[in-house]
């Protein structure tokens, strides 16, 4: 639209004084800003977080409502109907003992999520405790950190296998074993954060204004460790799910009476060339869940503190 082609009636004629050429109304080249709701803004700003959270939400739903999702008893044997391919009755087929793989995978979600969340929570609590002690009690620091270095020098999976060998297989023991192997990472992260926060001027100002050490930790240190801790916890959650599946796969994890993705795969392993679906479905669920948790972790990291991208 040019200045010479003002459509008649675009402006009231008396608005333009004689001899003055008026600029036309601006064309609507710029679209109106899109109105987004709170949720829309969240999706737009943090798509990876939302995607991860959505998938994890579905998994959580499955874990909680497993008995109501058209499942049968996941441990019920039916030798006559073993190794059936996926069909309308057996959605994911049946395994070599005739158990319904769909039901087993649905119930297996529970084990994975409990282990993932349990390990993330426990190792966060223990790691923060050790990290804060290490960061504040300097003479203990080198002792604690050498122990942590020692734990970290053993591959987590081997450490977990070794610990499981000492006890009998149960979900609680699996959580404990994986937690022990993950604590050093959290402790080191938190120790580093505490050490750098201690040097912050606001912490020194708090010391100068008479704040005692416990209150400094509670008010000035811990709240500022939440962001890096949350991010680390999601990665640990994902690692714990994988470790649990590995432990179950090699028979060192959850007992065979409790279906978990790891032991479903272990049982299907012998037949995977002829009946691949037994392994495929639990493996797909495991991959998708771990991916979801990792997506959430990446999203959280970008959301909470972009600088963390370099630190982790």
């Amino acid at each position: 639209m040019s200045a010479t082609s003002i459509p008649p009636g675009a402006m009231p004629p008396d608005a333009i004084p004689e001899g003055v050429s008026a600029a036309p109304a601006l064309p609507d080249v710029l679209p109106a800003p899109r109105a987004r709701g709170k949720f829309g803004t969240l999706v737009y700003r943090h798509p990876t977080f939302v995607a991860g959270a959505a998938i994890l939400g579905v998994m959580l739903f499955i874990a909680i409502f497993a008995p109501y999702l058209g499942t049968v008893d996941p441990t019920a044997l039916a030798p006559a109907k073993r190794t059936r391919p996926p069909s309308a009755i057996y959605w994911f087929g049946t395994d070599m003992l005739g158990r319904d793989v769909y039901s087993r995978v649905m119930y297996g979600t529970r084990v994975s999520l409990i282990v993932g969340f349990g390990v993330a929570l426990l190792s966060s609590v223990a790691g923060v405790l050790i990290g804060v002690i290490s960061g504040f009690v300097r003479w203990l620091d080198s002792v604690i950190m050498r122990v942590m270095d020692g734990l970290m020098s053993i591959p987590p999976i081997l450490l977990a296998i070794a610990l499981m060998a000492l006890t009998r297989g149960s979900v609680g023991n699996v959580i404990t074993a994986i937690t022990v192997s993950q604590v050093p990472q959290v402790a080191r992260l938190i120790r580093g954060v505490v050490l750098s926060l201690r040097e912050q001027p606001y912490v020194e100002a708090a010391v100068a204004s008479g704040t005692r050490a416990p209150k400094i930790i509670l008010r000035h240190i811990l709240p500022n460790t939440v962001a890096p801790l949350t991010v680390q916890a999601t990665y640990i959650c994902a690692a714990a799910m994988i470790t649990e599946a590995i432990l179950s796969f090699i028979g060192a994890g959850t007992p065979p009476t409790i279906p978990s993705w790891g032991n479903i795969m272990a049982e299907g392993r012998a037949l995977w060339q002829v009946k691949p679906y037994i392994v495929f479905f639990p493996a797909a669920f495991l991959s998708v869940t771990v991916l979801a948790v990792n997506l959430m972790g990446d999203g959280l990291r970008d959301w909470l503190d972009p600088r963390l991208a370099k630190r982790l």
């Binding site: 912050q200 001027p201 606001y202 020194e204 100002a205 708090a206 008010r219 000035h220 709240p223 500022n224």
Partner: peptide, 9 residues
Amino acid sequence: FQDPFSSLN
């Protein structure tokens, strides 16, 4: 302190 950004929690 010097830095007005890091001297307040």
